[in-house]
């Protein structure tokens, strides 16, 4: 199919620039590396960072999977998939295990990723300290000098007010015992998956023009206190479609009386679990 665009939309020089930044980001796990972000045919906030990272590393042999909130069939996922189908003419899949490149928004797939895969996160706000310290100059110093007391003060405040940490998404992590990193708005349920993950994790923020990375087999620790250890969400219910008790469940209101249903947020996991159980 002829599109009039270079393979993967970006020109080769831009791709090289982004790849150089990705390499730098991999060398300094968790460090936010500035890059010359381009305008993409997508509004800021819809994954312009992730799409640029994906575009710069995608090859003709790659099989791409795009998920949005765990689902393969939601607007953001579908439009990004169509975009890459048009500008790269590559294979697209819904199967986590088949994909070599996964772009994601707000979830990490339930299926464990392997060393041949790369996961690209769309990042709404790369700076975990932004809401605590508005000055960019200061947050850079806080990172450089590893002064992370503020982040723990935030957790302290939540425990003192609510009895436990109430942050359930974008729960800050410490990467490789060094940089505090924003894991993007994934539920904290997914945080343990980031630790020692076999796959390479890349993060792209388009508006803020930052790339950061967590290399394979890197220690990722969710912040906590000695006497208030980090915990993930649990549910009393199971998925009403596949019956899974291990996956992250979405709560869905199904009628006007407020009847609730719980289903897996990862649609691919749900489907394959259902097939397996048949």
């Amino acid at each position: 199919m002829k599109t009039g665009f270079n393979f993967a939309y970006l020109d080769e020089a831009t791709k090289r620039m982004i790849r150089r930044k990705i390499l730098k980001a991999i060398c300094i796990p968790g460090y936010q590396c500035p890059f010359g972000g381009r305008e993409m045919p997508l509004a800021y906030g819809w994954g312009t960072g992730g799409i640029q990272v994906t575009a710069s590393i995608i090859g003709k042999q790659d099989i791409l999977k795009v998920i949005d909130q765990g689902a393969d069939d939601t607007t953001n996922a579908v439009s990004i998939k169509n975009f890459f189908k048009r500008v790269c003419n590559i294979m697209i899949t819904d199967r986590t295990a088949e994909a070599s490149l996964i772009q994601t928004r707000h979830r990490i797939p339930e299926t464990t990723l392997n060393k041949d895969q790369i996961i690209v996160y769309q990042v709404p706000q790369p700076e975990p300290l932004r809401k605590l310290e508005p000055k960019e100059k200061e947050t850079r110093k806080l990172h450089a000098y590893k002064e992370y007391a503020l982040m723990h003060v935030k957790l302290y405040e939540e425990i003192s007010q609510f009895g436990s940490v109430i942050k359930t998404w974008a729960y800050p992590v410490e990467t490789n015992n060094r940089y505090i990193t924003d894991p993007t708005p994934i539920p904290k349920f997914d945080n343990p998956k980031m630790n020692n993950m076999e796959a390479l994790q890349l993060f792209g923020a388009g508006r803020e023009k930052r790339i950061y990375a967590i290399p394979p087999y890197t220690k990722v620790k969710s912040l906590d206190f000695d006497d208030h250890p980090f915990e993930i969400q649990t549910w009393d219910e199971c998925c009403s479609i596949c019956g899974s008790t291990k996956s992250y469940l979405d709560e869905i209101i199904i009628n006007n009386e407020g009847k609730k249903n719980f289903i897996c947020s990862d649609t691919d996991f749900c489907k394959s679990n259902l097939e397996k159980n048949k």
């Binding site: 002064e147 503020l150 003192s160 006497d227």
Partner: peptide, 26 residues
């Protein structure tokens, strides 16, 4: 820091010297 509680203000100082035990901070 007026946006965080009295205890949080004191805790910030202690967290700077790597105190990571909530009840001790308290």
């Amino acid at each position: 820091n007026l946006r965080i509680s009295a205890g949080g203000n004191i805790a910030e100082r202690l967290l700077n010297v790597s105190e990571k035990n909530y009840s001790h901070l308290r």
